[in-house]
Amino acid sequence: MSLFLNQRVLVLNRLWQAVNICTARRALTLLFEGHAQAVLNAGDGSFQTYNFSEWRDFSQQDPHPESVCTVSFRIRVPRVILLVVFDRLPKKEVKFTRHNIFERDKNTCQYCGQAFDRKDLNLDHVLPRDRGGPTTWENIVCSCVPCNTKKANRTPQEAGMRLIRKPKRPKWRPFVQINLGLHYHDSWKHFLDLAYWNVELGDDLQ
Rank of each mutant, 00 (worst) to 15 (best):
M1H: 12
S2T: 02
L3M: 03
Q7H: 11
R8K: 13
V9H: 07
V9E: 12
L10N: 08
L12D: 15
N13G: 09
R14H: 06
Q17W: 11
A18L: 05
V19F: 06
I21D: 02
I21L: 07
R25A: 13
L30G: 11
L31N: 10
F32M: 10
H35K: 09
A36Q: 10
Q37L: 05
A38K: 03
A38I: 02
L40I: 07
N41Q: 09
D44T: 05
N51L: 01
F52M: 04
S53C: 01
E54T: 02
W55M: 06
S59L: 03
Q60W: 00
Q60V: 00
H64G: 04
P65Y: 12
P65V: 09
T70P: 03
T70L: 07
F73R: 02
R74Y: 00
R79W: 15
V80H: 11
I81M: 11
L82G: 05
L83E: 11
D87S: 09
D87M: 01
R88T: 07
L89C: 06
P90C: 02
V94M: 09
K95R: 12
F96Q: 07
F102A: 06
N107M: 11
Q110L: 06
Y111C: 01
C112A: 06
G113R: 08
Q114Y: 15
K119E: 14
L121H: 09
D124K: 00
P128F: 02
R129F: 03
R129C: 09
D130V: 01
D130H: 08
D130C: 04
R131G: 14
P134G: 11
T135W: 03
W137N: 09
E138F: 00
E138Y: 01
C142K: 04
C142A: 10
P146G: 12
P146A: 09
C147V: 05
C147D: 09
T149D: 07
K150I: 13
K150L: 14
A152P: 04
N153F: 01
Q157F: 08
G160A: 08
R162V: 07
L163D: 05
L163A: 02
I164C: 07
R169T: 13
K171A: 03
R173K: 14
V176D: 00
L180S: 12
L182Q: 14
H183Q: 14
Y184P: 01
H185I: 04
L192Y: 15
L194I: 13
W197F: 15
L201Q: 15
L201F: 15
G202P: 05
G202F: 10
D203A: 09
D203F: 12
Q206A: 13
